[in-house]
Design a binder for these strands. Structure first.
Lengths: 194, 194
DNA sequence: CATTAAATGTTATCGACTAACATTTGGCTG
DNA sequence: CAGCCAAATGTTAGTCGATAACATTTAATG
């Protein structure tokens, strides 16, 4: 009760600092580019020390690239019929989990994606971020009897399609929905492209 | 004639330095890991200055990850029937270009790939390296009438399958051929998985 | 043997990131 | 209200990858 209150209050202060960092970084990145913006600038704009920046974000790119490994994805894939080929199972699983994607779309999501789409360094960081999800999918498929290489290819391929759609969404017109683009991308992987 | 001879000799010296760097780096990477190895160590082991290291390789990871963008790939894709879907066209093009892949397999290729497969930082660098190839494929498909998003998905997906096969090859038994793995991976993308 | 251009070395600097230690903040308890 | 306490922040110093400007060495050539 007591320590719980402390924890809450302290967390509020930390959250505010984190939000200030995020605002300052997003603003600077959009005005002068990701690479041209230094952590020192971000810290100064946020009214903190560079050291404090790294206390809230492990790396500079972590401000834009978060790795929300979603257990729901692996779960949705496991729900698909086991007799399907790994690729098709993964594809249908991703489509099934697509409904939850809109939950990720906060107000700054599209701005962040647009920045990632423009910077090779950020795209690389994003690719590393999806590896956890890929690994989870692979383990799920393998545990259901798939060959490891087949499972790896299935996961890598489906996530590549989804990532391509995500990056395209970053610079797409405002009325374009992310779910629509992902669905369109995954449709190309369908065995019967009707 | 005169300057040509100078160029040759000078180049030989540069090539020997480059080879010494490569040997030293590969040895150190395998013994103590990529991240745990510093450029200073490599330079010292190669008998040069850190500065000279960066004169031969733009980055630390460039010792292992080269970006041999192969125009033959885009060309082979262009050869495929235009009425095919972008994904199938890309898939067949990659399969057709597969014969040239063995040319990339020098003595150290597999050791390098094994190191890349183990390090997230190196996998990220490799991903950035394939972006040039992906872009070339996309431009080719678009110039033949494909939608940009469809072309991007097709290129990203096929290269993801090939990359997955490549990384698997790095730790596969010695009698496993890279071409065989890539062929197997791309087969999963076939519209009729017969 | 002097010339010349490439290859290498020196020195200084930047930016991302980390470790160790000191300081401030602010709610809570007696 | 005074003082405790733990989280948050600051300070300092350093490592490592990478770059720039300038000096030096190398070795074939005429």
């Amino acid at each position: 009760m007591l320590s719980t209150n402390i924890w809450l209050v302290v967390t509020i202060r930390a959250l505010r600092t984190r939000a200030r960092i995020l605002d300052a970084a997003l603003d600077l990145f959009e005005r002068q580019g990701y690479d041209a913006t230094t952590v020192n600038e971000i810290a100064e704009a946020a009214g903190i020390t560079p050291m404090t920046f790294f206390r809230h974000f492990p790396t500079k790119d972590a401000v834009l690239v978060t790795d929300p490994y979603d257990p729901l994805i692996a779960e949705a894939i496991g729900t698909q019929p086991v007799d399907l080929a790994p690729l098709e199972r993964t594809r249908r699983g991703l489509l099934a989990a697509l409904g939850d994607i809109s939950a990720l779309e906060d107000a700054t999501a599209k701005r962040r994606v647009a920045l990632v789409a423009e910077s090779p360094a950020l795209r690389a960081a994003a690719a590393v971020g999806t590896e956890a999800t890929q690994q989870a999918i692979v383990e799920r498929l393998v545990s259901d009897g798939a060959e490891r290489l087949d499972a790896t290819v299935a996961a890598a391929v489906c996530l590549a399609a989804a990532t391509a759609a995500l990056l395209a969404w970053g610079t797409a017109p405002d009325d374009t929905t992310l779910a629509g683009l992902v669905r369109h991308a995954l449709t190309q992987l369908a065995p019967d492209p009707s």
